[in-house]
């Protein structure tokens, strides 16, 4: 439990719904859910083993104040961003974005499942893109395969994964769709400095606004 997580739990006491309305992107929509379950039935990952709760259950648990169970759930991280639930919801809840919002909040508080692979990939992806302004696909793959979920370099795991993916990689290189030289640079924006300053400012502003709501 991070200090910030404890502070937020104390600040919002028994009102987890209010906490997410203030602190999570699109959280203000949660109370609109009428528990029909169309989202669950529309989700492409719902038939795979492994998710704890479908969206409508997460929303009811939020209202029931089951804070820790929601924030540590792997459910939000199952989202493929296919927007099926979003367009089918009879009450027009932006379910995809609500799930992203709760996941992001759990991630920010440091309580999301540590070894969750999509959490890990999401972080790698953002850092990759934010570094130069454009995604470097080779570095993205290297970071994904050669680092464990806590960000530590793991050579053996990486080699194993790279071997598994070898035939795909060779096919892509032959097709001109993977350039190993991107390891040493690759595509980037000219105004990287401006982009980084912009992102830093955006993050500060967002944090300030959220802190004000909690004040």
């Amino acid at each position: 439990m991070s200090a910030n997580n404890t502070a937020m739990a104390v600040r919002y006491k028994n009102n987890f719904l209010k906490e997410l309305e203030d602190q999570a992107e699109m959280g203000e929509w949660i109370k609109m859910c009428m528990q029909c379950g169309v989202c669950a039935g529309s989700c492409p990952t719902n038939f795979h083993p492994g998710w704890d709760h479908p969206p409508q259950e997460i929303f009811m648990m939020v209202r029931a104040g089951r804070r820790e169970e929601v924030l540590t759930s792997n459910s939000m991280w199952m989202c493929t961003s296919c927007y099926n639930c979003y367009v089918r919801c009879p009450r027009k809840l932006p379910i995809t974005h609500i799930m992203h919002g709760i996941a992001n909040y759990a991630h920010r508080l440091g309580v999301a499942p540590k070894l969750q692979p999509t959490r890990n990939f999401g972080k790698i992806f953002w850092n990759n893109a934010a570094k130069t302004g454009r995604v470097n696909e080779v570095m993205l793959t290297v970071d994904l395969y050669f680092r464990n979920a806590e960000g530590k370099f793991d050579l053996m795991a990486g080699i194993k994964k790279a071997l598994e993916m070898q035939s795909i990689a060779i096919g892509l290189v032959k097709a001109g769709r993977l350039n190993p030289l991107e390891l040493f640079g690759g595509h980037k924006c000219k105004d990287q400095k401006g982009i980084q300053a912009m992102l830093k400012k955006a993050r500060e502003l967002e944090e300030t606004r959220k802190a004000l709501k909690a004040a």
Binding site: E25, A103, T118, A130, I195, A202, E206
Partner: peptide, 26 residues
């Protein structure tokens, strides 16, 4: 000129709302 990454859908995890909007806004 000098366009940047949109943040993609998966950007939600680390990005947050305003940084994502800033990327597209740029």
């Amino acid at each position: 000129p000098d366009w940047n990454c949109c943040g993609a859908s998966i950007g939600y995890a680390e990005g947050g709302e305003l940084p994502r909007l800033a990327l597209s806004g740029r």
